[in-house]
Write a protein that binds this DNA or RNA. Sequence first.
DNA 1: TTTGGTGCAAAGCGTTTGCACCCGC
DNA 2: GCGGGTGCAAACGCTTTGCACCAAA
Lengths: 147, 147
Amino acid sequence: MNIEDLKSRVKSGGYKITPQRKAILTVLLEHRGCFISVEKICEETRKIHPEINITTVYRNLDIFENLHIVHKIFIDEGVSRYDIISVDAHHHHIICKGCGKTEVIEFCPLGDLVGLAEEKKFTLTGHKIELYGFCDKCKKKNDGAGK
Amino acid sequence: MNIEDLKSRVKSGGYKITPQRKAILTVLLEHRGCFISVEKICEETRKIHPEINITTVYRNLDIFENLHIVHKIFIDEGVSRYDIISVDAHHHHIICKGCGKTEVIEFCPLGDLVGLAEEKKFTLTGHKIELYGFCDKCKKKNDGAGK
DNA sequence: TTTGGTGCAAAGCGTTTGCACCCGC
DNA sequence: GCGGGTGCAAACGCTTTGCACCAAA
């Protein structure tokens, strides 16, 4: 997936290609594999398009979410984070609590759980499996600091 | 677990027993098994102690979380929800998207995932498995409404 | 040219904080 | 009586909205 693919998906969604949108998409591609905060996205986008306003970033992330270009999550209270969707199949995540780095797990261990849910008369519509921890880099940093 | 147990846990945590705290704990017990929002907790608590302020509810839920009496989650953007902890062992949840009703799953299918995480050089510190769906009651309600 | 997109400022909303008063122990 | 607890109001931080101007197609 590259910037041209993304631009054509935005276009075929009925949206115009503006320099702001191009810049945000570029940033998202550069940070593929991390759930980064809106504030960080805005900051990074300003390196490409200095005049962009955070309102525009919010509005466009919302559009990109509807176009299934990004995935939005709430790890922390009160902050939304986004990552570009690079795997179409059903999958889960390992998320670094240090830097937000994300690895995709394509395996899903859900079989037995579905049976349990049915026993409890729940009709499942979705599920979320998230593993938290520290990636190699953050672990080394923390070990060094003694915490 | 009953209200007396909870009161003694609050007391031995070094906190006083006030009518407000008693009322919030009572509400939490009555809603055991649901992740309910702070606003709902406040509303319900007012049926017992009409003058309680939402600030007090926030402050005490925070204390109860530190005492491991309640579990806080963020299902929705911008709203925290709490449920009283009734199972001490490691476990997961099935959460009804209709009413917030929660069932505990004591089984954890994580074995294979831990191996995958290690391959990717992640040091795991925790994980969350949440299944979303509709409980029996909400499903019937939705079926009736045609949606 | 036309209509959607953007920037700015203000509003919204859940949550937290400051402070004077209150009350459990 | 002391020190933590509460209510109220104001502040906070992230997000959304209203509106006039701008620019992609």
